[in-house]
Amino acid sequence: MNFIDICSGIGGFRTGLERNGHNCIAFAEIDKYAIQSYKAIYDTENEVELGDITTMHDSEWEQFKGNCDMIVGGTPCQSFSIAGKRLGFEDTRGTVFFSYVNAIKQVQPKYFLFENVKGLMSHDKGNTIKVILKAFDEVGYDLDFEVFNSKYYGVPQNRERIYIVGIRKDLSDKPFKPVAVGKKKMDLLKAWAKVEINLRQIHPQLQTEVTALLVDVLEDEVDEKYYLSEEKTKKLTVDFDPNKMIGIREATKQGYAVAEQGDSVNVSYPTSKTRRGRVGKQVAQTLQAGEVNQGVVMNDIRIRKLTPLECWRLQGFTDEQFYKAKDSGVSNSQLYKQAGNSVTVNVVDEIVKGLN
């Protein structure tokens, strides 16, 4: 299949699709450092570079009609995330979504695949996700949506993201999606979708087994600069047995969580009185774009931050891809940001396997 990579970042969607033999014909991104990495990783010489999709006219999209089988992308999620102010469509970043929908409307690919934060389901009391699903429905697509956790797809990162997949209505021969009866947000949303849109069985069955551990992606040797200072470690920890484990301060009744070798530790705001859930048992917590928020307990029971390479590995990228980006001159701070902004390659790979 030929596909267009929208809000491409460093190509998480692209790598997943290329693993399945599909071909990129155009990409769109506005971050100059992400573009730098993207062009270093992939051969884009014969592809159309679209730039800012919010400035594109319908006629510019029409050139791809009949030659594009799939549009993929995740529009900026900050406006829908619990980590942001959650202004949704009132935030200009949220309106990029409508440009994404318009691209689908004009090109009419066989499929699209859209990714965003899990918090999309609760934003504006659940109304935002309904607007999004309705928008896809109205431009001619049957839909399926699920929350996939990256830790079940071969990368040790606890990262929950919603993936919406659509198949053009005139091509859809998929059975209707069975809907569970329950009170969870996903159950209620699917019950709504069963009535308001065509909810189809398109996504693969969710996996529930962790197959990789954080230690599997760690570099053998890292610079001392990645280790937390003694001062920061003291702010983050309580008294502990230095031979076995560390007590990580958090806002729970006990006041700390035990972290052992190979566990991840959220190292942001070490003096915070409200943080909880800082420790990830043998998997990393969700990578963020704004900072290096993830550390790991090493075999000497010291905490160090993850390296940029380790963060790229946690998103399913190869070392070769990482070094192509790094060797092009992209800074470590941008490499961290790019990993935090990316989709997980392995999840995309799994989703697209079942699409023809």
Results as ranks from 00 to 15, higher is better:
residue 97 F to I: 03
residue 217 V to M: 04
residue 243 N to G: 12
residue 13 F to D: 06
residue 227 Y to V: 05
residue 325 A to E: 10
residue 342 S to W: 14
residue 204 P to E: 08
residue 128 T to W: 08
residue 39 K to P: 04
residue 91 D to Q: 05
residue 165 V to N: 08
residue 68 C to V: 10
residue 256 Y to S: 02
residue 147 V to P: 15
residue 206 L to K: 10
residue 109 P to D: 07
residue 346 N to P: 13
residue 328 S to Q: 07
residue 124 D to M: 13
residue 123 H to K: 05
residue 249 R to C: 02
residue 115 E to F: 13
residue 245 M to R: 15
residue 252 T to C: 13
residue 139 V to C: 00
residue 26 A to M: 10
residue 82 I to E: 10
residue 321 Q to N: 10
residue 244 K to A: 15
residue 223 D to Y: 03
residue 211 T to K: 10
residue 300 D to I: 05
residue 13 F to K: 13
residue 300 D to G: 00
residue 290 G to K: 14
residue 198 N to M: 14
residue 283 V to S: 06
residue 313 R to K: 01
residue 336 Y to E: 00
residue 276 R to A: 09
residue 224 E to D: 07
residue 287 L to R: 05
residue 323 Y to G: 04
residue 46 N to H: 02
residue 109 P to I: 14
residue 46 N to F: 01
residue 257 A to I: 08
residue 215 V to I: 05
residue 302 R to P: 02
residue 148 F to N: 07
residue 49 E to A: 14
residue 192 W to P: 04
residue 62 E to W: 09
residue 182 G to D: 14
residue 66 G to T: 11
residue 255 G to A: 06
residue 188 L to K: 12
residue 84 G to L: 07
residue 209 E to I: 13
residue 337 K to G: 04
residue 73 G to H: 14
residue 203 H to K: 00
residue 137 D to W: 01
residue 250 E to P: 06
residue 181 V to K: 15
residue 299 N to T: 11
residue 189 L to A: 03
residue 3 F to P: 03
residue 323 Y to P: 09
residue 242 P to W: 12
residue 279 V to K: 15
residue 60 E to T: 04
residue 48 V to N: 00
residue 192 W to N: 11
residue 97 F to K: 06
residue 82 I to V: 15
residue 313 R to G: 00
residue 71 I to Q: 01
residue 136 F to H: 02
residue 120 L to Y: 05
residue 345 V to K: 00
residue 75 T to N: 13
residue 1 M to N: 09
residue 250 E to Q: 03
residue 99 S to C: 14
residue 187 D to C: 07
residue 14 R to N: 08
residue 264 S to K: 01
residue 215 V to Q: 11
residue 123 H to C: 12
residue 312 W to S: 02
residue 134 K to T: 09
residue 80 F to G: 12
residue 327 D to S: 00
residue 104 I to K: 01
residue 342 S to P: 04
residue 232 K to W: 06
residue 4 I to E: 04
residue 127 N to T: 07
residue 161 R to Y: 04
residue 17 L to K: 07
residue 138 E to R: 08
residue 231 E to G: 02
residue 205 Q to E: 14
residue 66 G to C: 06
residue 156 P to I: 01
residue 304 R to G: 03
residue 93 R to K: 02
residue 275 R to E: 10
residue 323 Y to F: 10
residue 213 L to N: 13
residue 323 Y to Q: 05
residue 248 I to M: 14
residue 168 R to S: 03
residue 171 L to C: 11
residue 19 R to G: 13
residue 228 L to S: 02
residue 276 R to V: 01
residue 332 N to G: 01
residue 2 N to A: 06
residue 132 I to A: 12
residue 169 K to R: 13
residue 6 I to Y: 08
residue 344 T to R: 11
residue 174 K to V: 11
residue 41 I to M: 01
residue 186 M to Y: 12
residue 10 I to A: 14
residue 150 S to N: 08
residue 220 D to P: 04
residue 325 A to M: 08
residue 246 I to M: 15
residue 260 E to V: 07
residue 312 W to M: 02
residue 355 L to H: 03
residue 183 K to R: 14
residue 29 E to L: 01
residue 335 L to F: 12
residue 134 K to D: 05
residue 298 M to N: 14
residue 41 I to G: 00
residue 156 P to S: 08
residue 133 L to H: 08
residue 321 Q to D: 05
residue 46 N to A: 09
residue 351 I to H: 06
